[in-house]
Write a protein that binds this DNA or RNA. Structure first.
Lengths: 167, 167
DNA sequence: ATAAACTTTCAATATATTTTGAAAGTTTAA
DNA sequence: TTAAACTTTCAAAATATATTGAAAGTTTAT
């Protein structure tokens, strides 16, 4: 396989996998491109490389910065802004886990807590509702605790966990 | 909060959260409805309750069965088919982890393995590409190993892990 | 202060995904 | 075997999401 082919494959695989961690195609592709680039890239270079519009590039770079996985860098003597991706996959996982917890899990946990607290009127449907939404609440809490551990500073939690439990 | 209000909130929260585990709104809502229903429901009842078409209900029930989290049940003396959800959240997590690994993670791991094996021509961009795609491959492998552990029969892995590491 | 270089915004447009509903298909009872 | 009861399929329509590009906005150099 040629470099060019491998690169295109990486970018498109990452792009279509984007939904796995809740981002759109262009956003994932920009991230993929920066992730494998040895040097920071300008907006011009990114839109050129991916064949997407200036507006699209601008908006998705912003979104990636909101996720905390792409940063602006200043290249001395250049007026343009340059961008680089977080390169450390451990740190990348941390940021993604942190953002997904904040954006999705925590709001859900709050709703589950509220609705599982309705008064038990003794009917079968109410009993089942309370039981099941409580179980879901516990599960979401557990998932959130795991994510928080991934996010926390403790080094290599994932690896340590695996060594202990999988070997 | 009234039962009806809590129920609608659960169904719509689950519906909009569907994307978190890669399913569409109707599919998530049907699942939510069955998850809190004390009894199996017919297609008629589901489409009535959620206000969706027969075709939509049929297709999404099929998809939920493909995911292994909804099952047909035979109600004696009834000609219609009835459906019920997996009620145990542990088993639910297992099925979802298993399916997501199979559908998304494993194909990605394969691509990453292939493309990170291109020949090193010594250039900076090739070196960076190989380094970064290898790191991503390792991460994906680790994630898949975790999912497999969740999927495996070992009871309460999540809980045990949490007790050991989070307390 | 001016203007060139660059970035952002957002209404319009394009694309992708979901939903509908009626026709076709299947099963069951008599 | 017939027909009623029920389910599935899928082309068309509706909806939701992503993308464009040009105008407006901002920054920098002189």
């Amino acid at each position: 396989m040629e470099f060019k082919e491998a690169k295109d494959k990486f970018i498109s695989t990452w792009g279509s996998l984007g939904t796995l961690w809740g981002i759109n195609k262009a956003m994932a592709q920009i991230h993929a491109l920066l992730f494998i680039s040895p040097d920071p890239m300008s907006m011009e270079e990114i839109m050129e490389e991916l064949g997407i519009s200036r507006g699209n590039t601008s908006m998705n770079l912003r979104a990636l910065m909101d996720w905390g996985i792409v940063h602006k860098v200043n290249v001395p003597g250049e007026r343009k802004e340059y961008f680089e991706s977080e390169k450390d996959v451990t740190e990348l996982s941390r940021q993604i886990a942190k953002e997904r917890s904040r954006r999705e899990l925590q709001p859900t946990i709050k709703v589950l807590k509220d609705i599982s607290s309705i008064e038990d009127d003794g009917s079968a449907k109410t009993k089942e509702f309370i039981k099941q939404t409580k179980a879901m609440h516990d599960l979401a809490d557990t998932a959130d605790a795991m994510m928080n551990r991934i996010v926390s500073q403790e080094q290599n939690w994932i690896t340590k966990t695996l060594v202990k439990f999988l070997k």
